[in-house]
Amino acid sequence: MPDEALLTVRDLRTHFETRQGVVKAVDGVSLDVRRGEILGLVGESGSGKSITGFSILGLLDAPGRIVGGSIRFKGEELVGASPERMRALRGREIAMVFQDPMMTLNPVLRIDTQIIEAIQVHERISTRAARARASAALQRVGIPSPDERLQAYPHQFSGGMRQRVAIAIALLHRPALVIADEPTTALDVTIQAQIIFEMQKLCAESGTALIWITHDLAVIDGMGDRVCVMYAGRIVESGAVRDVISSPAHPYARGLIDSIPSRNERGKRLSQIPGAPPTPFSLPQGCPFRPRCGRADAACLEVPQETTLRGERRVRCFHPLEESV
């Protein structure tokens, strides 16, 4: 079944209990990822998009913990799964690519050591065979003369090459799902295009589904199938990329798209969202976007529920923009 959901997240809540109070970093997120699909998770800093990714992988650090909801991967419940089970899944079935590859690669180990270790953790395979696989993996992500480059240390690679190594490691076991957290944000434009190109190609080849976490709607527009827009720990709008970007229904999504400079007439004032995103300790009552929203009224003092507009288009707003309904 091509449409079968690979990952189903329902009402996920990840909270951080701090001395200043409880931070509801993720507060009721539901999303589906199908096999081979590219899902964009878009939001500004602090919106909970990265914590959503970490929650799926079971990579939360204390005091963060999942306090509610369910994460089902290939039908298996991951919330409450044993650390051993998560370790077996991570890297083999679900892999992650982070923003800064300098933080994910061990600076004192050669690239070959790190890749071979990642292979042998999940498979009983001779080091010689693992080395051949490592070389092939580097070749696949477009690193020239992979056999020599295997001998190098991470600092001998440029930023774009390091990110390629990180992607090669993530794809070693042909995982069903890769979660990429701002993988191109630290890279230059021409290098970003190379990485997006490789990811698109590799995911298409191996049927890997991808959750691409980013603050940049333009990147998602160029590569994604569906998009979820997050604000203050919740998904405020989701749907096919084309629909959401051409006619956003949530006032926040609309504001975000309208404020992109290339969407505005040159030299004119940009349309802007007033105010700033709320801090987790001072969430406004009701809809968290209410103080910045031009359509807010008394109804917005309640928290809006997610409603389906049509098909897959879902929005969390009492007053969605008309033209998209």
Partner: peptide, 24 residues
């Protein structure tokens, strides 16, 4: 030309990125 082609832009829809070979 390469820079302008490769900037992701909203409104282009799904596309295949053409790639400038090599590194800076």
């Amino acid at each position: 030309r390469a820079l302008l082609e490769e900037v992701p832009q909203v409104g282009t829809g799904k596309r295949i990125y053409s790639v400038v070979k090599g590194e800076i």
